[in-house]
Design a protein around this nucleic acid. Structure first.
Length: 114
DNA sequence: TGGTTGACGTCAG
DNA sequence: ACTGACGCCAACC
């Protein structure tokens, strides 16, 4: 994939990956960035998520940081939306952190690489 | 046009 | 194990 073409493509890549996240699974910004070949650009993935507000099809609640912490919950319509969405998908959330994060972790570089 | 910020991650101390 | 600093790239001021 030619992700280096321009920023538009990079954002689009992020969107595509996030859309492919199965229900009840979560991934991290770094994992997405890694899959796109830009491990160090994880911050830009965050920006993509910020811009993702214009894209209702993108389940941004399934994207958290490496610690499984819901760092982006404050960017949702309500601070509880993210947690509630995850809970409704069978993911336990405690203190803004996903329990058994590793268990629910969905790595695009593994799942999509096949 | 240049400096700062941000939904992050990794390395060094 | 914990804390601080750096890098990275796009958007904002």
């Amino acid at each position: 994939m030619n992700y280096s073409k321009n920023s538009q493509d990079f954002f689009e890549q992020v969107y595509l990956v996030v859309k492919e996240i199965p229900k009840g699974r979560v991934t991290s910004y770094g994992a997405i960035a890694k899959y796109l070949g830009a491990t160090r650009s994880s911050r830009v993935v965050g920006w993509a998520m910020n811009n993702a507000h214009s894209n209702p099809d993108i389940p941004a609640h399934r994207v958290v940081n490496r610690n499984g912490q819901l760092t982006g919950k404050l960017h949702f319509s309500t601070p509880f939306a993210m947690e509630e969405l995850l809970k409704s998908e069978g993911i336990k959330v405690k203190k803004d952190t996903i329990l058994d994060f590793k268990k629910h972790f969905w790595d695009p570089s593994i799942e999509l690489a096949l």
